[in-house]
Design a protein around this nucleic acid. Structure first.
Lengths: 349, 349
DNA sequence: CGTAACATTGTTATCGATAACAGAATGTCC
DNA sequence: GGACATTCTGTTATCGATAACAATGTTACG
């Protein structure tokens, strides 16, 4: 698809640079420092000079070189965000929130992805550090990589949205204990004897927290907790586990650790001829955009990843401004959204 | 949530810098230039010096400062990607592809989002340019912003994944004509008299191409094209339009311009008591992860946004390496995925 | 053996901005 | 009116790397 252009560029000219601050200074008849002052809104610049400088800036189409600026200030005005290299709703919602929050705070976002390996995570963080980001939002379970990552980021504020405190770093997110209680209790309140659980990958502390909270809620209600199944967040894994659960006649209520897996569960139950919610009730977590449009519409626990991303950035920015700040975990409570996938259990025969 | 730390940091020390190339040079007893040579794999460095340098690098935990490097080389090793500030499948799949492609090519990704306004798009591109990205992938309709954007990016390779050639820039993506033909013809082949269309926002040239191709396909088959409806890519807009179409008894086949809208259509039809696919057939576009798990599973036209993202980066990287390159549009053909949402029309009464 | 070609390393200038300091002009107060 | 603060602007050094050039030492070969 790519062919050499007709007029071959003989002069090796890797790139052209635009006008520099010096060019503007010369054109405006002032020193470069004055240009810098104007552009940085420093006080003590005469109004007439300011106007003249801005006019020349406009005329030359001058744009400040942030690389040079970053070099001398030590600040890149960039925030890094690390996610897994998968495409799911929560990941992209969080990234969006980070981007929006960053923009409002005058930062841009450097996004990297990784797999779950220590090697992958470490190198992903390494890439961010190398790019000189001013702070990092991590939306992935670090696990064994925590040590190496913290070594890399000694001088950089870092925050985790996976609920993990393994790094001792700051945590921003949604209270997963509450989320699981809301889901489980909702099903119990409807009259179900017990609630089955399709958990997320247990290396995610969010998933672990949901599982534990589900278990505790059942226990507190005096119910036996059935063995839990585990998925990998994918709809396909939900489908697989749905087939297993759907074949057990005693299953009447399922709490699925993510909406995307819940879609798979719904599909499996339908294929097995078990009606939702008449025969089996299903609750998800997340409230993805599509949750209201499944058949039946999915009852779920809403957590705003976008908001989490924004709060993560806010926290990072605060710490950049004042490294002496320490913060306590910042968790917000999710809310239950009741739709059509839950109902009382079928009348006992 | 944020409180001042106990031990107040008195010395105003905004940040600490790690060891520099000079530090490594001193420790290794060579010049800084030699360090640079070793780190850049230049030839003509004696094996013993190379080893000594690498040892010192390791020992000091030295990491090269990419900002300084970028300043002098004029290359930031960063690629910018511009998307809309929404969270849909295609956007995040594309971003993921860009990230993966960039990583393989030794680049990182600077992601910005925008709304559809000229002002928003211009400033988003401006932010990327300011950050010194080496190339830009645009996944949004530029429309009126094209002029200003091209002014900003004169010196930077740019590529568009929305099928739009308004900028004269290079285009990478999926052939939307074929996509719409596949969907429409599939429904005609099943015996439907005509095919209704829920289009995407017509400012997206992809959406426009699908609409035109749908129209042409019907025309070529000698069928009357019914008036098309238009959504905004959201499931909710699909739902709204689905309610309209579902109330028309003559509607037996609907081609929806995205899977997410198709979910809304499915939901609306179900609520109206029209069975899919027995009464109405529905085809989407994209093949999102959840498409196989709707009720019924969605027949759709698969296009890999991740692949598009990768190809976009490959093209950008090629042009960075050789600015003299020109390229023709690089479109790949999508494939039809037949699932459970399509069937022959109900027997005429 | 002398010299060209090559291998290896060092020196200096530069990228484009900002910080820190310095100097000139103006204003203020007793 | 003189001492001193204040306002405005310029000069110099610096951030951390690389490019271009220079300077050695080494090898090869007629």
């Amino acid at each position: 698809m790519i062919v050499p252009s007709a007029k071959e560029n003989n002069t090796v000219q890797p790139f052209t640079r635009g006008p520099s601050m010096r060019d503007v200074a010369t054109a405006a008849g002032v020193s470069a420092q004055t240009i810098s002052r104007v552009l940085n809104d420093h006080p003590n610049v005469q109004e007439s000079t300011r106007r003249r400088v801005l006019a020349v800036v406009e005329e030359l189409g001058y744009r400040r070189n942030n690389t040079a600026r970053a070099l001398v200030t030590g600040r890149s005005k960039t925030i890094g965000v690390l996610t897994l290299a998968t495409n799911n709703f929560s990941k992209s919602a969080l990234t969006l929130g980070v981007e929006l929050g960053a923009r409002e705070a005058g930062y841009t976002v450097n996004a990297v992805t990784s797999d779950l390996s220590v090697q992958g995570l470490t190198s992903a963080v390494g890439r961010l550090v190398l790019q000189g980001v001013d702070g990092i939002v991590i939306a992935a379970p670090l696990q064994g990589a925590a040590d190496q990552v913290s070594k890399l980021t000694q001088r950089i504020p870092i925050i985790n949205t996976d609920g993990s405190t393994s790094l001792g770093e700051r945590v921003v997110g949604v209270d997963q204990d509450i989320a699981a209680v809301l889901a489980t209790q909702h099903l119990l309140d409807l009259g179900h004897q017990t609630v089955w659980h399709v958990a997320g990958p247990q290396e995610w502390s969010d998933a672990l927290a949901r599982r534990n909270s589900w278990h505790r809620t059942l226990h507190d209600a005096g119910r036996e907790a059935p063995p839990e199944l585990e998925g990998d967040w994918s709809p396909e894994s939900g489908y697989r586990n749905g087939l297993i659960l759907g074949r057990k006649p005693e299953v009447t209520a399922i709490f699925v650790a993510s909406d995307e897996m819940a879609f798979g569960v719904l599909r499996a139950l339908t294929e097995l001829g078990r009606r939702v919610p008449e025969d089996v009730s299903v609750v998800g977590i997340d409230d993805i955009d599509l949750a209201a449009y499944s058949n039946p519409p999915l009852t779920t626990v809403r957590q705003s990843f976008e908001d989490t991303g924004r709060r993560a950035v806010a926290s990072i920015v605060a710490q950049i401004a004042n490294p002496a700040l320490v913060s306590t975990p910042d968790l917000v409570a999710p809310t239950l959204i009741v739709r059509g996938s839950t109902a009382p259990p079928p009348a006992a025969d």
